[in-house]
Design a protein around this nucleic acid. Structure first.
Length: 270
DNA sequence: AAATTCTCCTGAAGGC
DNA sequence: TGCCTTCAGGAGAATT
């Protein structure tokens, strides 16, 4: 499932091939995504040049002279660049045609979104209430500590709250907590500043490592077979419930916090 | 205002 | 082999 590193990897993969190019037309085969794809998307985007592709949280922002398109990959979404003549397959919902090429959106579970705004993108309702980027200077242990002090939630819920910090999904929340030695169930207001500093550092570290590994397969974005080329970093706890901790060999436990699977080592994480 | 629960969807995995 | 059930999950919406 695309988390921040996958979205950033996607951005880096397609940006060099899309930025500066003109969209001839947009083909919406099935606009029933998280929200309906704007019916006028073809009229709005047709003939427009993509000036830049940026990212905010897990949203990709395609900037043009008359507005911005936001794309969210949801849980199962992907963007690939293919020859425009490539026949679409099941779940290939939207095509952006650029000369001989096609940027194609596939999303089997349709939790993704394609939105449009003619206002500055950062003012969009989906973007204007988000917390800081985890890899920005606005995010550090002191900030997390301050947020945690005034809330009554578990530290895992704090990490996954997009109004606190964006882009930390279930997988990386689990991994960062393990690396920081903090139990996902610990109340956010009962963690020392020094441990929050360690946690913030591990959030950044695991995201940076994942992005770095994604970068090794960027060329895949041009491949006709469309293999996504997403990295698979070594996950130390996520998906390993019942297996031995890689540090101490204690059986990893799993429980649910706010409908989300949480895996941790009862010995290493306190 | 903050916290919790519900919701969308479909592929994968498990049970029999 | 195949049908049925359960589960996973990003994040906004609804509810408490």
């Amino acid at each position: 499932m695309p988390e921040l590193p996958e979205v950033e990897t996607t951005r880096r993969g397609i940006a060099p091939l899309i930025e500066g190019r003109r969209i001839d037309r947009v083909l919406v085969r099935d606009g029933r995504l998280r929200w309906p794809v704007p019916a006028q998307l073809n009229q709005l985007l047709g003939g427009q040049t993509v000036r830049a592709i940026e990212r905010r949280a897990k949203y990709l922002i395609f900037r043009t002279d008359c507005g911005s398109m936001l794309v969210h990959l949801g849980m199962s979404g992907s963007l690939r660049i293919l020859p425009a003549i490539t026949p679409p397959e099941k779940h290939d919902h939207v095509d952006w045609i650029l000369g001989p090429d096609c940027l194609r959106f596939r999303d089997p579970r349709r939790f993704g979104a394609v939105l449009w705004t003619d206002q500055p993108a950062e003012r969009h309702i989906r973007l204007c209430n988000l917390g800081p980027e985890p890899l920005s200077e606005d995010f550090d242990g002191r900030y997390l500590y301050a947020c945690g002090q005034r809330r009554q939630v578990t530290v895992k819920q704090l990490l996954m709250d997009g109004s606190i910090v964006v882009g930390v999904g279930n997988i990386y929340a689990n991994e960062a907590l393990f690396r920081a030695g903090i139990r996902p169930t610990r109340p956010s207001h009962r963690i020392a500043l020094s441990r929050y500093q360690r946690l913030a550092g591990q959030v950044q570290a695991v995201l940076r490592e994942a992005i770095a590994q994604g970068g090794t397969t960027l060329r895949d974005f041009q491949r006709e077979d469309g293999r996504p080329g997403y990295f698979r970093i070594q996950l130390k706890v996520y998906g390993r419930a019942g297996e031995p901790c890689l540090i101490c060999e204690t059986r990893l436990r799993q429980l649910r916090i706010g409908q989300r699977a949480s895996v941790y080592c009862p010995d290493c994480q306190r």
